[in-house]
């Protein structure tokens, strides 16, 4: 699809979220809640007494962002099936080893998971939502994401080499 058109749909969805929920879009919040739920299943006592997850109580999944994340996966699946873009694979450059891509995806995930808790949001919840509200800190976050990204990209370029 025309990226600008996709952007307009994204913007209207964000606007609808502001007007209906009174809060913007978010993805990492739902994911963190699932992580909290997982930790709760393994070590309930420890999790409930921890300072961060503990504040979410014994039922962290009862939260609107968890449902938004579920919708996000379903919407993505619907669209991917419709456009015939589903295929099970580890995406990487043709001449790059699979193991490198696996390690980098995992390591990137850990950094992103940690950082989105620290900054209270990710590209959706902080950069996109906060910037649309013209919140100063969110604009700073957006700039820092790209600064960090460009600084690191050169070192991990091999994973995309064909």
């Amino acid at each position: 699809m025309n990226p600008y058109l996709a952007g307009v749909i994204l913007g209207l969805t964000l606007l609808a979220s502001f007007l209906i929920l009174g809060a913007g879009l978010g993805a990492s919040g739902g994911l963190a809640r699932m992580a909290a739920y997982g930790e709760l299943c393994v070590a309930p006592e420890h999790t409930l007494s921890s300072a961060y997850f503990g504040a979410w109580g014994s039922d962290p999944l009862r939260y609107y962002l968890v449902f938004m994340l579920a919708g996000l996966v379903l919407g993505g699946l619907f669209s991917a099936l419709l456009s015939g873009r589903t295929s099970i694979l580890v995406e990487r450059g043709a001449s790059s080893p699979r193991s490198l891509r696996i390690i980098l995806a995992l390591a990137g995930g850990v950094l992103v998971g940690f950082a989105s808790r620290l900054a209270q949001g990710c590209t959706s919840g902080q950069a996109l939502t906060g910037s649309a509200l013209l919140a100063s800190g969110s604009l700073v976050f957006l700039a820092c994401v790209f600064a960090g990204g460009y600084a690191a990209a050169w070192f991990v370029r091999r994973q995309w080499h064909d």
């Binding site: 950094l111 950082a115 620290l118 590209t123 700039a143 820092c144 960090g148």
Partner: peptide, 8 residues
């Protein structure tokens, strides 16, 4: 957070 996020 933004810098770490960008690297990730």
């Amino acid at each position: 957070g933004g810098l770490i996020f960008g690297v990730g």
